[in-house]
Design a protein around this nucleic acid. Structure first.
Lengths: 209, 209
DNA sequence: ATAAAGTTGTTAAAATATTAACATTGTTTA
DNA sequence: TAAACAATGTTAATATTTTAACAACTTTAT
C-alpha cells in the first residue's frame, strides 16, 4: 500500500494536471509540478515512481496518461457514495464545494435534525431528516460520511452510521470519535490548525528579534 | 523549537484538559488523556516531557498547571488578532465555530467582496469590504488570516495581506499559494481529505476480500 | 519493613517521510 | 560523431515521528 502522504499528494497532482490540461498542455515535467505545488521535483518523481508510471526524458510526463494512472489508484471503479451529516454553514460549504467536482465520489444525500432544513434541496443535495439515516445509507449503499454536525451528537451518529455500513468518515467536529477498527477515520480540526499557525507565527517572531 | 506534531497535540490536550476540568477533575493520568484522544500514553508523556512539565507518580498531571504550561507555549502573551477573508458558508462556519472560544486568538474582522454582506455583523464578526483590507490590517494589527474565499482571488488577496503585515495564513482554498519565506502557511484541502478517506476505504475493502 | 503495583520520565529503537546523490537515457550542439 | 545538457528513475542517506524498553519513584498491601 502506498504511503499516506503520497496519497495526499496524488490527489493534488491530479487536480494540478487537470488544470494544466485545461490550458492545453499535453506534457509536464516533474519540476513544473513541483513549482506549482511548492514541492521538490524529487518528491514528485518519487511519488510517480511509486505508482508505477513512467515519463520520457525529453517531454516529461504525459498529462492524460498520468491522470489516468493516478485515477486508477485513487478512484474506486464503481465510485463511492457519500453523505454529509449536518447542514449548517459548514455542511453547506462542503456541499457547495464538492458539487459536481468529483465524479467518483458522489455526495448523494445530506442530513439534518432541524425540520426547517429537511425535505428539500440544499446546495444541490437533498436534505433528509437524521431519523432516515439508516434507511438511506442502506438504500443508496453509502460508504463515506462527512460529519459537520454539533459535537454533542457526533458519537451517537457515528455509532449509527457505522452500524448501518459506513466505512470511512471525515470528521469536522472536534470530538475524538470511537470507531471500529475496519472503519477509516480522518479528523480535521480547525482550532488545532489556527493554533498551530499562531504558534509558528509567534516563534518566528521571537526568532527575528 | 517543538516538533510540529507535538504542537498539534498540545492544542488537543489543552481542550481535553479544559473539558475534564469542567467535569471537576483536578488530576489526570497520561493513559486517560491517551484513551480520550486515541493516542498512546507514551506519546502523551513524551510530549509533556518536551514542554518541560512534570507530573507526580501517583496523581498524574495537575490539570490546571498543565493547561497553564501548554498555554505558555501555544499562546502569544499579548494575543494575536486574526481575520477571515470570504464570508460565504465556509467563512461563516469558521466564524461561528470560533466565536468566543479562543481568547488569545481574536477574530476581529471579516471581509467580503459582496456589498450585500459588508457593513454589518455576520456570525458575531463585523464584515468589511475587501477594499478595506490594508487599512484594517494595519489599524488592528492583524497577524493571522483565514482564507475562505473564491480560488480566483486567493493569490491576489494573499499578496495584499502579506504586504500589509500578515504573518500567518490558514488557507482553505485549494489554491497553492506563494508566500514570503517569513510567512507561515498552513493549507487545508477538503478534496484531498475526502479522496484520502475514499482511497483507504477502497484499499481496506480490497484487503478484506 | 519489604515487596508489589502502578506511574512518570527518558533513552533507545523502529518506522515513516524527505532529501540527496547519481546512474541512465534521450536530445541537442559543436 | 562525440560531448554537453537536461531530464527521469532509483538507491542511499538523512530527518522526523512514533513506539518500545526500562529505570526511578510513590503509594499501598502484606
Amino acid at each position: 500500500m502506498l504511503p499516506e502522504k503520497t496519497i495526499e499528494r496524488l490527489s493534488q497532482y491530479r487536480r494540478l494536471l487537470l488544470a494544466n490540461k485545461q490550458k492545453g498542455k499535453e506534457n509536464i515535467f516533474s519540476h513544473e509540478i513541483a513549482v506549482q505545488l511548492h514541492l521538490t521535483s524529487v518528491q514528485v518523481r518519487r511519488d510517480i515512481m511509486l505508482i508505477g508510471y513512467s515519463g520520457t526524458q525529453r517531454k516529461g510526463y504525459n498529462i492524460d496518461l498520468l491522470i489516468e494512472k493516478i485515477s486508477s489508484i485513487l478512484d474506486d471503479e464503481k465510485g463511492l457514495n457519500s453523505i454529509i451529516i449536518g447542514m449548517g454553514n459548514l455542511g453547506k460549504a462542503i456541499s457547495t464545494y464538492f458539487y459536481g467536482k468529483r465524479n467518483k465520489i458522489d455526495i448523494v444525500a445530506a442530513f439534518d435534525i432541524d425540520i426547517k432544513k429537511t425535505g428539500r434541496l440544499i446546495s444541490g443535495v437533498w436534505c433528509y431528516h437524521t431519523s432516515d439515516l439508516e434507511t438511506i445509507i442502506k438504500e443508496k449503499q453509502i460508504s463515506l460520511a462527512i460529519l459537520a454536525l454539533a459535537p454533542e451528537a457526533a458519537q451517537d451518529i457515528t455509532d449509527r452510521i457505522i452500524f448501518a455500513g459506513v466505512k470511512g468518515i471525515l470528521n469536522f467536529t472536534s470530538v475524538p470519535l470511537n470507531v471500529l477498527p475496519n472503519v477509516y477515520l480522518e479528523n480535521y480540526d480547525m482550532v488545532t490548525s489556527i493554533e498551530k499557525v499562531a504558534y509558528f507565527v509567534k516563534e518566528n517572531h521571537l526568532q527575528n528579534r
